[in-house]
Design a protein around this nucleic acid. Structure first.
Length: 323
DNA sequence: AACGCGTTCAACCGCCCGAGT
DNA sequence: TACTCGGGCGGTTGAACGCGT
């Protein structure tokens, strides 16, 4: 019982999107909001697969997307998140609201992977205790850390599931530069035009769009999914510890993680102050309507990391704690 | 100018998951 | 419970582009 393709192969256009197609898609979404992608090709008359429409929107046309030129902060963030979450590009992208998962994935594959590889070989070549070597830990310790991770994940999850704690976590993440507060506070402004201030679309739509949007529907599925991914990330790390290096590697490189946490803060403030106008913030709110909820698991992760880090400082604290 | 090669990135493909029935 | 369907995700592809020869 094979599943039929998402759309008829015949009569479906493939390949690069034309500006005309973009305009049609954007005007449709501007009017109806993203979602119900199945209906998009028929309603718009586009000879495109529904998936293709969704992809075009999420990866290219969606407002608030920043393209190219990844900053050093973003690089660090991607590297660390990749280390934590593995190739969960959507989850990683949820921490970089201006970047798409596809962009991050591409950037990782084209730039960062090579960069890290080079770094790794350089380290290995230059000293006996290279990058890879430094990551090796005794098996017993590895197992104990894994157990610790599991406990932490359980704890974090139970906290996340508790409404009080959850709100606490959100509130604790009250970094002035943190966009979550503005996200939640700008919720009422969701009816803002989808394409009105996104640089990439505004240019294209100049002179085209005159009517205000009718709908305030939001693209919730992406972020919801991201949230789910992230909420699951902790559990994954714990439950499938043997699957990937994340839980182990998580316990390492704490210095760099602290560095990262700091850079993350400055990164957020930098990014949002330099490139996000109040209007754009609202746009991001549209893109990530549940961003407040997304921040929460990040707090969990931060907490997790910091807990472990503090334990790391005290010799063998984590190990003694659970054994 | 022409060619080959490497890189980049938009787009596609196939699988998976959750919601609905 | 079993099945269908829509949507999301990650891996892969291939056209476009840049650069060196």
């Amino acid at each position: 019982m094979g599943r039929p393709p998402c759309c008829d192969k015949e009569g479906v256009k493939k390949g690069p999107w034309t500006p005309e197609e973009d305009i049609i898609l954007v005007s449709y979404i501007q009017e109806h909001g993203p979602g119900n992608w199945r209906a998009v090709p028929t309603k718009t008359g586009l000879s495109r697969c529904s998936k293709s429409c969704r992809l075009r929107w999420t990866n290219y046309l969606r407002p608030g997307i920043r393209r190219g030129n990844f900053t050093e902060q973003e690089e660090k963030m991607i590297i660390h998140l990749q280390d934590l979450l593995g190739n969960r590009w959507a989850a990683i992208a949820s921490y970089l609201p201006q970047r798409t998962d596809n962009d991050i994935k591409n950037y990782w594959n084209t730039h960062l992977r090579k960069k890290l590889k080079k770094l790794q070989t350089d380290c290995e070549g230059s000293s006996g205790e290279g990058f890879a070597a430094s990551r090796q830990i005794p098996r017993g310790q590895w197992e104990r850390r894994l157990q610790t991770d599991i406990q932490m994940a359980k704890k974090a999850l139970s906290e996340a599931l508790s409404p009080e704690k959850a709100s606490c976590l959100s509130a604790s993440n009250s970094n002035p530069s943190d966009s979550s507060s503005s996200f939640s506070s700008t919720k009422p402004a969701q009816s803002l035009c989808y394409a009105s201030s996104a640089e990439n679309i505004a240019r294209m739509l100049k002179g085209w769009m005159k009517n205000p949007p009718k709908s305030s529907r939001t693209n919730s599925s992406v972020t919801q999914n991201s949230f789910n991914n992230l909420a699951a990330a902790g559990a994954d790390t714990a439950s499938s510890g043997a699957k990937g290096p994340s839980s182990v590697e998580l316990s390492e490189n704490f210095e760099s993680l602290f560095e990262f946490d700091q850079s993350l803060e400055s990164s957020n403030s930098d990014q949002f102050s330099q490139s996000v106008s109040p209007e754009a913030t609202v746009l991001q709110d549209e893109n990530k309507p549940d961003i407040g909820a997304e921040i929460m698991p990040f707090s969990m992760l931060e907490k997790w990391l910091l807990d472990e880090a503090s334990c790391q400082e005290k010799v063998g604290c984590g190990d003694a704690k659970f054994f």
